[in-house]
Structure formats: C-alpha cells, structure tokens
C-alpha cells in the first residue's frame, strides 16, 4: 500500500503531498498523522500542498479532520503552499478549511508553528503567575 511519508523535525511533523491523492491514500495519511502525533508527541503538523492541482470537498474534509484531530492531541496544524487557482476554487465551492491554519509557504508555516507553540508553552512571566487566580 502506498503511503505519504511523514518526516519528523524536532517538535514538528512535515508532510509534503507530491501527487494527487486518491481517497485511500488520503485517509491513510489522516490516520498515520494522528498516530505519529501521538507517538512523537509532536506539537505541530505542517502540510505542504503546493503540488496539489485541486482540492475538492473530500480533500478539504481530510485536511480539516487532520487539523481537528491534531488539535485534540495538542498539536497545531498549518497547511502551506496552496496554489492561487485552488484557493479561488475552494472559496467558490464554499469550503472554508476550518480547523487548520494556513501560510503562504513552508518557511512562513514553520514560523507560524513556532509562534503558536511558544505562546502555548511559555505562559506569562513568573511575576504574574501568582497574582492570577
């Protein structure tokens, strides 16, 4: 069975989708990713879809699912590299890609993930830790 490789990079998981996914491959990716998040305790998932020429409602749902499932497992998901024609089509189709963050490219996506995690992990300075609550 074909699989989309998931790379681990520090606290993040990286996925680059290089081919148009048929359904089975997409659902495999969904479950593989959630298991990897659990196994590696990843705090972020970055999915590069720059090679995808279309995102239909099925693929949109898969991306949304990955986002929501990862969220429950305490990891943020960012989808990067969407082609402009795909973005135009998604909006006209009525898909909003809820539950995932988006960024223009891998670099910006990584920055976004780092910011998200920094703000999660480092609650305000010790000084106001006692005063709150």
């Amino acid at each position: 069975m074909d699989r989309i490789p998931i790379l681990r990079m520090g606290k993040f998981l990286l996925v680059t989708i290089q081919i148009d996914l048929y359904d089975r491959l997409a659902t495999n990716l969904e479950s593989d990713l959630v298991q990897m998040v659990n196994k590696t305790e990843a705090k972020g998932v970055l999915i590069d879809i720059s090679a995808l020429s279309i995102v239909d409602s099925f693929m949109g749902r898969i991306l949304g699912n990955i986002g929501s499932m990862s969220k429950i497992m305490d990891a943020e998901t960012v989808v990067v590299g969407m082609q402009p024609a795909v973005a135009i089509t998604l909006i006209e189709l009525g898909l909003e890609l809820k539950g995932v963050h988006t960024a223009l490219n891998v670099e910006k996506g990584m920055e976004l993930l780092k910011e998200k995690i920094a703000s999660d992990e480092e609650p305000p300075d010790e000084t106001d830790e006692d005063s709150t609550e």
Partner: peptide, 17 residues
C-alpha cells in the same frame, strides 16, 4: 486558463464522487 481548469476539474471531482 489555469483557474478555469481548476474549477472544472474540481467540479468534475465532486460529481464523480
């Protein structure tokens, strides 16, 4: 055009599913 292609193929994908 690329945008029209993308729209057509996406529509086709929805209908075929």
């Amino acid at each position: 055009s690329l945008v029209n292609q993308t729209k057509l193929i996406t529509a086709a994908s929805e209908l075929v599913r």
